[in-house]
């Protein structure tokens, strides 16, 4: 299985990188852009019998290492490799 992990700063946590990107986009004339949040993307190959099994395994990885729950949220997508 291929598991895609999207990690973003929690709402309410100041994201200076996202803000800098937002300002740059606006200065380029992209005035429709609203708040920008900048995060991380991690792809993992996981041996698992089902999508559910792969997702629950990667969720444990996120809780223990990949994301810091104090400042970050994450979501997963599972694809059959």
């Amino acid at each position: 299985m291929l598991v895609k992990v999207f990690i973003t700063p929690k709402r309410g946590v100041l994201d200076p990188q996202g803000r800098a990107i937002e300002h740059s986009l606006k200065s380029l004339g992209f005035n429709n852009v609203g708040q920008v949040r900048m995060g991380k993307y991690i792809e993992l190959e996981v041996a698992a019998a089902s999508s559910e099994e792969a997702a629950s395994e990667v969720k444990r990885m996120c809780d223990q290492l990949l994301a810091n729950s104090v400042i970050e949220d994450y979501r997963l997508e599972v694809e059959r490799a």
Binding site: L14, V70, I71
Partner: peptide, 10 residues
């Protein structure tokens, strides 16, 4: 408790 994040100024 807490966490340390990127400086406000980057």
């Amino acid at each position: 408790p807490g966490a340390l994040t990127r400086n406000r100024s980057l």
